[in-house]
């Protein structure tokens, strides 16, 4: 796991100097890059990240509620499991690259035998316990897996969601392959293929304060600041590894314009280096590919899928895709 230097004086957004290399030779580099700028980061910020992730996106919630009771679905990149119980009538199989987040997700499922493990991040009004009449949530499950090497068998499930995941993949080929993997899991023998919902950050964020919009740089490093307020937490926070900081941390992500950025190379250990500060909160640089309008639909087609419907919701693009019939 990468351990990025801590600093409070990190550039708000660091631009990547070169366009992301999409060729196969770059695959290993892309992997190493994502290990440093996605996987390592989430592993380190898991509890903090989890504490800031409560509300399901409306488009995702309505997709889940539209699924028939007792159908079975995947949540690839389930994070802390906030979508696993949104529709307690369906069975969800969640997977995530981060073992730390999967452990949190499992605790939210409230498995007997995990007594005492309580997650403070449970959202109000969220139904996690078994619904007596439908009960799909009672048999939901989670595991650790990479979105590009999913362990699910072909056509295993009725539907899949993949929320805020593929924008962390650093080449277009990998993002398309991730969609291909999702489509593979809903490829059924029946006439109609299951639906896949993919949700990504948009380049067009004119209404937000982040300052990103049409025509801007699409490949970015976005800082996550583990803001601690107790001396103890600060000392322990030098490597960014925290155990329980729900009560002492405040998230600050993104937030400023890309004007103050330093050029960065795509691969390499130094990519996330920040200037040193005296007493500082750990800063983690997460890689994002911001999707421009229409790009997500293009990726679905390139992955061999068809677009059922698509839309924009508060700084995000989403698409519902399926296998061609």
């Amino acid at each position: 796991m990468a351990s990025l230097p801590s600093s409070s004086a990190a550039p708000a957004v660091a631009r990547l100097a070169a366009a992301a290399a999409a060729d196969r030779d770059a695959e290993a580099e892309a992997e190493a890059y994502e290990r440093a700028h996605v996987h390592g980061v989430y592993q380190a910020i898991a509890p903090h990240f989890s504490a800031t992730r409560h509300k399901p996106w409306p488009a995702v919630a309505s997709f889940l509620h539209a699924q028939p009771p007792r159908s079975i679905g995947l949540d690839v990149g389930c994070g802390n499991g906030k979508y696993l119980g949104v529709n307690p009538a369906v069975v969800m199989l969640g997977s995530d690259r981060s073992a730390a987040l999967v452990a949190l997700a499992r605790s939210r499922l409230g498995r007997p035998g995990d007594a005492g493990v309580q997650d403070a991040t449970k959202t109000q009004g969220e139904v996690m316990t078994a619904d007596a009449t439908s009960g799909g949530a009672a048999i939901s499950d989670v595991l650790v897996a990479d979105g590009l090497s999913l362990p699910f068998r072909d056509g295993a499930v009725d539907f899949a969601i993949c929320v805020a995941v593929i924008h962390h993949m650093s080449t277009r080929a990998r993002r398309q392959d991730a969609i291909r993997q999702l489509l593979r899991c809903v490829k059924t023998r029946e006439v109609a293929s299951g639906h896949v919902l993919v949700y990504v950050w948009a380049l067009e964020q004119g209404a937000s304060r982040r300052g990103w919009d049409e025509g801007g740089e699409q490949d970015l490093l976005v800082p996550w600041v583990l803001k601690s307020q107790t001396p103890r937490a600060q000392k322990k926070g030098t490597r960014g590894q925290k155990t329980n900081n729900d009560d002492v941390s405040v998230a600050t992500t993104g937030g400023e314009s890309s004007a103050s950025t330093a050029p960065m190379v795509l691969a390499g250990e130094a990519a996330g280096t920040t200037t040193g500060g005296a007493v500082s909160d750990p800063v983690f640089q997460r890689y994002y590919h911001l999707y421009r309008k229409g790009e997500l639909e293009e990726d679905v087609l390139a992955a061999g899928g068809v677009v059922i419907t698509s839309g924009y919701e508060r700084d995000n693009w989403w698409v519902v895709a399926a296998n061609p019939s």
Binding site: G113, A145, L148, S149
Partner: peptide, 13 residues
């Protein structure tokens, strides 16, 4: 602890 891990070593990816 009840969680299966399907991450692959790099030579199997």
């Amino acid at each position: 602890e009840g969680i299966a891990n399907f991450l692959l070593p790099s030579h199997l990816v």
